[in-house]
Every structure is written in C-alpha cells, then in structure tokens.
C-alpha cells in the first residue's frame, strides 16, 4: 500500500484528541479573562494542524491544555482513551512524560547542559527513547552535540529543542511559534525537521504560528478568534516546508 493511503487509513481509524466545550477563564484580581469560550474539536493521529489567530485569541491556551500544562475551567478533553480533564497533577506529568513533545519560540534549553545532555534530559525519563546522538543526527547536529546553548546559533538551538522533543518518540509534538525567533532559511530547516518527524514517526503535530504561510504545510488549519475556533480550513494538499513563501 502507498504510504499516504496507509496514513489515510490510520487517520480515519483513530482520534488523537477530542475536546468538547472546552472553556478557560483566567481570574486576575477582579477581572475575568475568557481565554477559551467553548471549543469543540477532534484531532487525528498523525495529523499536522496549524493554529492561526491574533494574540489573545486562545490558541496558546488550547495548546497548553492539550499538552497537559494547564487545565480547562470546564469541558472535557480525551487523548486516545484517556480523559485528560480527569487526571490529577501526577498523572498529567506522566502523560506529558510519555506522549508529549514541546517546542517553544525561545527554545527553553538548559544553558548549563550541552546539546546532547539537553536531549538526555528527556531520554533519561522516557519509556522507549531514541539514542540522544541519533536524535541530534536527525536534526543535523551530530557534530555539535558537545556544544552548550550559548555556543549555538538560534536556529541550531531550536533544532536541539526539536531533537529533545522527538527523542522520546512522542505521539504528539506541540510547537508554540517554533520559527518565531528565526530567519526564513533557518525557519524552513526547523519546519522540515518537524515534517520529517510527522512523516517518519507518524507524530501528530500542532503548530501555533503568526505566519500564515506555514498553514500550507498542514492537513487542517484552525482559525482562532476571541476564544473560539472561528473556522476550520482543510488543505487539499500539504506543501513541503521548502515551498513555503515566508
């Protein structure tokens, strides 16, 4: 069977996430901020999803909730057969440890650890991790594994962060503005790495971005506005990151 057809079959078979009426209210002092105002969605395994929308529209809040970093005020969220909204802090940590990979705009590498050690931070506690050196090789940094973050360029640092995220072979990669701090050439490189993880490891990708061009590499695009998913766009064809117009 052709690889794409195989993937289509899986997509139809299984939902990675399903969220129902998710709401999030932040209370700061006397003001209430409604970050999510009732969001419903299903995300399939192996899907590439891009979240677009202006600042404060709720996309980061959703990403945090999906990643088990935060809890909704109300609503339910399932990952495969597990109801995430019912888990306590300990089990949420376990969930992150087992299934989630995170990539942030500012890399969040530990400055006192080398590239390889930053990756080991994850492989030390993961169930079935890759070898840290292999993960770095996948992002093209095999030669720089003994360098500290301060000795790497921004793009290299972000690739270390990608290697750190994929080293545990996670089910889902959550990327919050992964290219926000990078120039276009470096940004493409990082996106290619993410795309490869999706292709080779069948990792579900959720990418938050302000860059509408990136949306073209997704299966679907969620457009956020005022705490709601205003519109869902399905791409007939995913383009390769190298084709993205920046």
């Amino acid at each position: 069977m052709h690889a794409d057809a195989q993937k289509d079959a899986i997509l139809q078979e299984r939902d990675a996430f399903s969220g129902r009426d998710l709401r999030k209210i932040y209370v700061t002092g006397e003001t209430e901020v409604h970050a999510l105002r009732g969001v419903d969605f299903d995300i399939c395994e192996g899907e590439v999803l891009v979240l677009l929308g202006p600042s404060g529209s709720g996309k980061s809040t959703l990403l945090n909730i999906v990643g088990g970093l935060d809890r909704p005020t109300s609503g339910t969220l399932h990952y495969r057969d597990t109801e995430l909204t019912a888990l306590d802090d300990r089990d949420l940590t376990r969930f992150r440890r087992a299934h989630m990979g995170f990539i942030f705009q500012f890399y969040n590498l530990i400055p006192s650890l080398t590239a390889e050690e930053n990756v080991r931070l994850v492989t030390d506690i993961a169930v079935d991790p890759m070898d840290p050196a292999d993960a770095l090789a996948l992002v093209g940094l095999a030669e720089r594994k003994h360098h500290y973050p301060a000795q790497l360029s921004g793009g290299e640092q972000q690739r270390v962060a990608v290697a750190r995220a994929i080293a545990k072979q996670p089910g889902v990669l959550l990327c919050d503005e992964p290219t926000g701090a990078l120039d276009s050439q470096t940004g493409v490189r990082v996106l290619e790495t993410l795309e490869a993880a999706n292709r080779d490891l069948n990792t579900t990708l959720l990418i938050i971005t302000h860059n509408a061009g990136i949306a073209a590499m997704a299966d679907r695009v969620f457009h956020f506005l005022d705490g709601r998913i205003a519109r869902i766009e399905t791409n007939a064809r995913r383009i390769h990151p190298s084709e993205i117009s920046w």
């Binding site: 530990i110 400055p111 931070l121 500290y148 301060a150």
Partner: peptide, 28 residues
C-alpha cells in the same frame, strides 16, 4: 546568557555517569 563549561570535576562526573540533572547541579 551565562556561559557554562565542563570543569575538571565534571569530566570525572561524566565518566562516573552523572545524569543530566547531576550536570545541571555541578555546573551551576
């Protein structure tokens, strides 16, 4: 940003099989 490097004690630690957390502590 602070620049870290592995000191002498550290290199011993690497041989002794420090975890990444161990390195974080010693280097700081």
């Amino acid at each position: 940003p602070p620049v870290y490097r592995a000191g002498a004690v550290e290199r011993l630690g690497q041989k002794a099989g420090f975890t990444a957390i161990g390195h974080m502590i010693v280097r700081h």
